[in-house]
């Protein structure tokens, strides 16, 4: 993973509009630390993941240590600690979806994306497929989250069409 991550390329996230955005967010809380999750979200939005330099930058902006920030990042499942495919595909397989055939949906995504394994990005860098726990949309089994978008009621036969609609 670190091969795709060139240290020299990292440029600061919190300049210009993103800095203003962070300042606005910080004004909503009595402590700087409370802006930590939102700040990490901004880094991930801008860089596609949360690299160590991003954690360091957030730490500096919020008067925290990089070690503290890393401790928080690793607690939550949604911050990427490595670069992921262009389309990050999360399939719920918790029991309510599982009884509706969610495992078949996972298999279909693996097959049609060319991803060899869960969590391993396809060779062309386009896809990463993972299984996730309940997405809070159990009545629309199987819900699949692709980057920021939800696709509801996915069945294995819909997978090729869903993939071809992605840019």
């Amino acid at each position: 993973m670190s091969a795709t991550h060139d240290q020299a390329e990292y440029t600061s996230v919190f300049t210009g509009a993103a800095r203003t955005e962070l300042d606005t967010i910080m004004s909503r809380y009595p402590t700087k630390m409370a802006a930590l999750l939102p700040a990490l979200w901004i880094v991930q939005r801008e860089r596609g993941w949360v690299p160590p330099e991003g954690m360091a930058e957030v730490a500096e902006a919020l008067d925290l240590t990089p070690a503290y920030v890393k401790g928080v990042v690793t607690f939550y499942t949604m911050y990427h600690q490595h670069p992921v495919g262009k389309h990050f595909i999360q399939v719920c397989t918790t029991s309510p979806c599982n009884v509706c055939g969610a495992e078949g949906v996972v298999d279909a995504f693996l097959k049609h994306t060319g991803c060899e394994e869960l969590g391993v990005t396809s060779a062309d860098g386009r896809y990463t497929v993972i299984e996730v726990e309940c997405l809070g949309a159990c009545g629309f089994a199987t819900p699949v989250m692709i980057n920021e978008e939800f696709v509801e009621s996915v069945t294995p036969d819909r997978v090729p069409e869903i993939l071809s609609s992605l840019k």
Binding site: T31, L37, L62, V72, F75, Y76, M78, Y79, E133
Partner: peptide, 25 residues
Amino acid sequence: VHKGAGAYICGEETALMNSLEGRRG
């Protein structure tokens, strides 16, 4: 509005408060 980051436990009320404060949940 405050956005969480993936952790069922943050629905537990005191974990939610920790998370909102910028801590582990």
